[in-house]
């Protein structure tokens, strides 16, 4: 039996500490150990992006990270972006523009989109499509996802201007 690792994480602002086998994947840590079940598993080849979380400021596919690699990290999932009473702009915008149907890709989509808009606050449609290319959706055909993200970008930029 391999030696267990002593892991510390910060997930959505909450400190977590536990022992884990090295082969534990971050997505399983989140879903099964910490019951953070927004991030999903849609494939086993690192393509779909349903497991996307923000880890130390990067969008990562949490299915392709061993827990030891994530040790000490700060992680944000969809649960950390907004609450049912106070939705994140992107969450509101996906609702408004019908950017989801079954909802399985949505947590990864929105988490990735939040990072994309942080890096590029005013993306073109093409930049949105390219910047979201690591996230697959079976339902929407992407069109409304693009609309949702562009609308959220405008709204966030308008709010920023109003605040200045």
């Amino acid at each position: 039996m391999p030696e267990k690792l002593h892991i510390k994480l910060n997930v959505n602002g909450k400190s977590e500490e536990f022992l884990a086998e090295p082969r534990e994947l971050l997505i399983h840590t989140l879903r099964e150990r910490l019951r953070v079940t927004g991030p999903h598993i849609g494939c086993d080849s690192s393509h779909c992006g349903a497991c996307t979380v923000t880890l130390n400021g990067k969008s990562v596919k949490s299915c392709t990270m061993f827990i030891g690699q994530a040790n000490g990290a700060e992680i944000t999932t969809i649960e950390g972006l907004g609450t049912p009473d106070a939705l994140h702009v992107l969450q509101e915008s996906f609702r408004e523009h019908h950017g989801l149907q079954c909802g399985f890709c949505t947590p990864g989509m929105i988490t990735r989109a939040a990072k994309l808009l942080e890096e590029n606050p005013s993306p073109s449609e093409e930049e949105v499509r390219f910047g979201m290319a690591g996230n697959i959706c079976r339902c929407t055909g992407y069109q409304n996802i693009v609309k949702s993200i562009l609308a959220a970008a405008s709204e966030m930029n308008a709010a920023k201007e109003a605040a200045e």
Binding site: S46, K58, S59, V60, K61, T64, M65, R112, G131, G134
Partner: peptide, 9 residues
């Protein structure tokens, strides 16, 4: 190469 998430890592 790959996609944004993969390129971060």
């Amino acid at each position: 190469i790959a996609d944004p998430q993969v390129r971060y890592m």
